[in-house]
Protein backbone atom coordinates (compact mmCIF):
# COMPACT_ATOMS: atom_id res chain seq x y z
CA UNK A 1 0.00 0.00 0.00
CA UNK A 2 2.78 2.32 0.98
CA UNK A 3 4.64 1.62 -2.23
CA UNK A 4 1.58 2.35 -4.40
CA UNK A 5 1.05 5.71 -2.74
CA UNK A 6 4.75 6.44 -2.85
CA UNK A 7 4.90 5.61 -6.55
CA UNK A 8 2.33 8.24 -7.46
CA UNK A 9 4.78 11.20 -7.43
CA UNK A 10 7.27 9.06 -9.37
CA UNK A 11 4.89 8.36 -12.25
CA UNK A 12 3.51 11.88 -12.36
CA UNK A 13 6.97 13.45 -12.52
CA UNK A 14 8.14 10.98 -15.17
CA UNK A 15 5.03 11.79 -17.23
CA UNK A 16 5.72 15.51 -16.80
CA UNK A 17 9.30 15.01 -17.97
CA UNK A 18 8.01 13.15 -21.04
CA UNK A 19 5.59 16.01 -21.63
CA UNK A 20 8.42 18.57 -21.40
CA UNK A 21 10.47 16.50 -23.84
CA UNK A 22 7.59 16.56 -26.31
CA UNK A 23 6.80 20.27 -26.12
CA UNK A 24 7.65 22.04 -29.33
CA UNK A 25 10.12 24.90 -28.92
CA UNK A 26 11.32 27.72 -31.13
CA UNK A 27 14.46 26.53 -32.90
CA UNK A 28 16.67 29.02 -31.06
CA UNK A 29 15.64 27.64 -27.67
CA UNK A 30 16.20 23.96 -28.43
CA UNK A 31 19.86 23.81 -27.26
CA UNK A 32 18.95 25.48 -23.95
CA UNK A 33 16.24 22.99 -23.01
CA UNK A 34 17.34 20.72 -20.15
CA UNK A 35 17.31 16.96 -20.60
CA UNK A 36 14.27 16.54 -18.35
CA UNK A 37 13.99 12.79 -18.76
CA UNK A 38 17.55 12.13 -17.61
CA UNK A 39 17.21 14.57 -14.69
CA UNK A 40 14.03 12.95 -13.40
CA UNK A 41 15.38 9.43 -13.92
CA UNK A 42 18.56 10.30 -12.00
CA UNK A 43 16.58 11.79 -9.14
CA UNK A 44 14.37 8.74 -8.72
CA UNK A 45 17.29 6.42 -9.31
CA UNK A 46 18.97 8.05 -6.33
CA UNK A 47 15.88 8.33 -4.16
CA UNK A 48 14.29 4.95 -4.85
CA UNK A 49 16.86 2.66 -6.42
CA UNK A 50 14.68 -0.36 -5.78
CA UNK A 51 11.72 1.02 -7.71
CA UNK A 52 13.49 2.82 -10.53
CA UNK A 53 15.47 -0.03 -11.99
CA UNK A 54 17.49 -0.26 -15.18
CA UNK A 55 14.43 -1.77 -16.84
CA UNK A 56 12.44 1.33 -15.97
CA UNK A 57 15.09 3.49 -17.64
CA UNK A 58 15.13 1.22 -20.66
CA UNK A 59 11.37 1.38 -21.08
CA UNK A 60 11.24 5.17 -20.71
CA UNK A 61 14.02 5.37 -23.28
CA UNK A 62 11.93 3.29 -25.66
CA UNK A 63 9.02 5.70 -25.20
CA UNK A 64 11.34 8.65 -25.93
CA UNK A 65 12.47 6.89 -29.12
CA UNK A 66 8.87 6.53 -30.21
CA UNK A 67 8.02 10.14 -29.35
CA UNK A 68 11.10 11.48 -31.13
CA UNK A 69 10.85 9.21 -34.12
CA UNK A 70 14.45 8.17 -33.59
CA UNK A 71 15.98 4.75 -34.11
CA UNK A 72 14.21 2.33 -31.77
CA UNK A 73 16.64 1.43 -28.97
CA UNK A 74 18.81 4.54 -29.20
CA UNK A 75 17.55 6.37 -26.13
CA UNK A 76 16.72 3.03 -24.51
CA UNK A 77 20.40 2.08 -24.59
CA UNK A 78 21.55 5.44 -23.26
CA UNK A 79 19.01 5.57 -20.45
CA UNK A 80 19.76 1.97 -19.44
CA UNK A 81 23.42 2.83 -18.99
CA UNK A 82 22.64 6.03 -17.10
CA UNK A 83 20.22 4.19 -14.80
CA UNK A 84 22.92 1.59 -14.22
CA UNK A 85 25.54 4.18 -13.26
CA UNK A 86 23.10 5.89 -10.90
CA UNK A 87 22.10 2.53 -9.46
CA UNK A 88 25.69 1.65 -8.61
CA UNK A 89 26.61 5.08 -7.29
CA UNK A 90 23.34 6.18 -5.66
CA UNK A 91 24.67 5.91 -2.11
CA UNK A 92 27.69 7.98 -2.95
CA UNK A 93 25.66 10.50 -4.96
CA UNK A 94 23.34 11.11 -2.02
CA UNK A 95 26.36 12.24 -0.04
CA UNK A 96 27.52 14.73 -2.66
CA UNK A 97 26.84 18.42 -1.99
CA UNK A 98 24.43 19.88 -4.57
CA UNK A 99 27.20 21.55 -6.54
CA UNK A 100 29.09 18.31 -6.93
CA UNK A 101 25.86 16.56 -7.89
CA UNK A 102 25.34 19.18 -10.60
CA UNK A 103 28.78 18.45 -11.93
CA UNK A 104 27.96 14.76 -12.06
CA UNK A 105 24.66 15.52 -13.83
CA UNK A 106 26.52 17.42 -16.55
CA UNK A 107 28.61 14.32 -17.18
CA UNK A 108 25.62 11.97 -17.25
CA UNK A 109 23.61 14.16 -19.64
CA UNK A 110 26.72 14.50 -21.80
CA UNK A 111 26.87 10.71 -21.82
CA UNK A 112 23.26 10.62 -23.06
CA UNK A 113 24.06 13.15 -25.79
CA UNK A 114 27.28 11.36 -26.68
CA UNK A 115 25.68 7.93 -27.08
CA UNK A 116 22.86 9.47 -29.14
CA UNK A 117 25.30 11.32 -31.41
CA UNK A 118 27.46 8.22 -31.78
CA UNK A 119 24.51 6.06 -32.86
CA UNK A 120 23.19 8.73 -35.20
CA UNK A 121 26.63 9.10 -36.71
CA UNK A 122 26.83 5.37 -37.31
CA UNK A 123 23.40 5.01 -38.91
CA UNK A 124 23.43 8.19 -40.96
CA UNK A 125 25.21 11.47 -41.33
CA UNK A 126 25.43 13.57 -38.21
CA UNK A 127 27.57 16.60 -37.49
CA UNK A 128 28.11 17.68 -33.89
CA UNK A 129 28.22 21.40 -33.27
CA UNK A 130 29.44 22.88 -29.94
CA UNK A 131 25.84 23.88 -29.18
CA UNK A 132 24.89 20.21 -29.25
CA UNK A 133 26.44 19.77 -25.77
CA UNK A 134 24.59 22.77 -24.34
CA UNK A 135 21.72 20.77 -22.76
CA UNK A 136 24.26 19.06 -20.48
CA UNK A 137 25.31 22.35 -18.91
CA UNK A 138 21.77 23.71 -18.73
CA UNK A 139 20.71 20.47 -17.02
CA UNK A 140 23.49 20.91 -14.48
CA UNK A 141 22.30 24.44 -13.72
CA UNK A 142 18.67 23.32 -13.35
CA UNK A 143 19.53 20.32 -11.16
CA UNK A 144 19.62 21.98 -7.68
CA UNK A 145 16.17 23.52 -8.19
CA UNK A 146 14.76 20.30 -9.58
CA UNK A 147 16.34 18.25 -6.81
CA UNK A 148 14.76 20.34 -4.06
CA UNK A 149 11.38 20.43 -5.84
CA UNK A 150 11.30 16.69 -6.40
CA UNK A 151 12.40 16.01 -2.82
CA UNK A 152 9.49 18.08 -1.53
CA UNK A 153 7.12 16.31 -3.92
CA UNK A 154 8.34 12.93 -2.75
CA UNK A 155 8.09 13.82 0.93
CA UNK A 156 4.58 15.19 0.57
CA UNK A 157 3.68 11.96 -1.23
CA UNK A 158 5.05 9.91 1.65
CA UNK A 159 3.14 11.79 4.32
CA UNK A 160 -0.21 11.24 2.64
Amino acid sequence: MMSVLGSFPLFITVLISLFLTGVSLPEKLVPYWPDWIVLVLIYWGMARPGRVSVFFGWFIGLLVDVMHGSLLGQNALALTLISYIVNILHLRMRMFPLLQQSFFIVMLVALHLGITAWIRGMTGEFVITPLYWMPAFVSGVVWPVLFITLRDVRRSGMKR
Binding site: G73, A76, L77, T80
Partner: peptide, 11 residues
Protein backbone atom coordinates in the same frame (compact mmCIF):
# COMPACT_ATOMS: atom_id res chain seq x y z
CA UNK B 1 18.90 -4.69 -21.88
CA UNK B 2 21.96 -3.42 -23.74
CA UNK B 3 21.88 -6.43 -26.03
CA UNK B 4 18.12 -5.95 -26.49
CA UNK B 5 18.62 -2.27 -27.39
CA UNK B 6 21.34 -3.06 -29.90
CA UNK B 7 19.18 -5.79 -31.44
CA UNK B 8 16.26 -3.35 -31.73
CA UNK B 9 18.47 -0.76 -33.38
CA UNK B 10 19.89 -3.22 -35.88
CA UNK B 11 16.43 -4.45 -36.83
Amino acid sequence: LVVASIALMLI
